[in-house]
């Protein structure tokens, strides 16, 4: 064990200036974070942000270029085999063995993780039941649907009862129903006390499931906190959604209105107005509406949502908050 004395014992992961270079390309740029025991920690970022590389470093599939990381006090650079006994990993590809049945796949994982012989069968059957795969016991992995493959991959990562589960984009490519089933499973697993490290580019998924989220972009963590804390980072700003008749085609019409930060017009002619002073902005907008004899079809004032937070933090500016809402 090489737990550094100064670190709190309740941390499942401690990453210190974790860095990965692929040649000259800096994929992960000196990131530091802690994951507490029994929490769901989300790594949220766009494609190519460095999420998967971080997971791969934390589970030993990619070498760390610089920095340190500890899993339950074990040093990744020196005690990888001990760490592998504590973690389960679900990669972003379904890479179980195609010709093996669900049962045989789980049994092989149980053997490789060193589950005691007399417990293996029961453990495998319990997992098949828990994941609703009991009737697929003898079905080959290659014959399962995408959603069932993902479920079996998660089951395979749990066969040795790990303390920490890495889920790398667990719902990527799944339909809505399968996605929700996986989300429910993640919550159930966390209720059983398993710490979960979840990477996703799905903002809704991260804000719905995670206790804390780190937003990562271009290999750097640009924000970290609970979903509420992240929302507060842009809480000073609200968004007015406005539809008028006849529609306004140019956003410059609102240029001189006080309290407005940014204006974007959507394809359905909805105007998304990012504001920092609701009263001043509404007064100014209503004045222009009257002056141009426009009819208000829809007027909606709302706070920043998860997507707004994400886009704003990713871009590092507030100017795209409006445009993000149009998607």
């Amino acid at each position: 064990m090489s737990l550094p004395g100064c670190y709190p014992l309740h941390d499942a992961i401690i990453a210190e200036k974790l860095t990965k270079y692929y040649g000259d390309f800096l994929a992960v740029d000196h990131i530091s974070f802690q994951v507490r025991k029994s929490e769901i920690y989300g790594f949220l970022g766009p494609n190519g942000a460095g999420k998967t590389t971080t997971v791969r470093m934390l589970c030993g599939l990619t070498r760390i270029s610089e920095g340190k990381a500890y899993i339950y006090g074990y040093d990744i650079n020196r005690e990888l085999v001990a760490i592998k006994k504590l973690i389960g990993v679900v990669q972003d590809i379904s890479n179980l063995y195609m010709e093996l049945s669900c049962y045989d796949n789980l049994m092989f994982c149980a053997e490789m993780y060193g589950v005691p012989r007399h417990q293996r069968k029961e453990r495998v059957m319990d997992l098949l039941r828990f994941f609703g795969l009991e009737d697929k016991k003898h079905v080959k992995f290659k014959e399962l649907s995408k959603g069932l493959k993902r479920r079996l991959a998660i089951a395979a990562a749990l066969v040795h009862k790990p303390k920490l589960l890495f889920l790398d984009e667990p719902t990527i490519g799944l339909d809505v129903k399968s996605k929700r089933q996986i989300w429910n499973l993640i919550c159930k697993l966390n209720e059983k006390g398993i710490t979960i490290f979840l990477t996703t580019h799905n903002i809704y998924e991260a804000f719905r499931l995670c206790d804390r989220i780190a937003i990562i972009n271009r290999g750097k963590i640009i924000a970290e906190g609970t979903p509420t804390e992240l929302r507060k980072k842009v809480s000073g700003n609200k968004i007015i959604e406005l539809q008028v008749s006849p529609p306004i085609k140019k956003s410059t019409i609102l240029d001189n209105v006080d309290g407005i930060i940014d204006v974007n017009i959507g394809r359905d002619n909805t105007i998304y107005i990012t504001i920092n002073d609701a009263i001043a902005a509404l007064e100014g907008i209503l004045e222009i509406v009257k002056k141009l004899s426009l009819e208000i079809v829809m007027l909606n004032l709302r706070g920043a949502d998860a997507e707004d937070v994400f886009i704003r933090l990713i871009d590092g500016t507030e100017k795209n908050i409006g445009s993000s809402t149009r998607r």
Partner: peptide
């Protein structure tokens, strides 16, 4: 080719 070799690297085996 299909990525399942990496699964072996995740197991606690040398």
């Amino acid at each position: 080719k299909i990525g399942s070799f990496e699964r072996l690297l995740l197991f606690p085996v040398s």
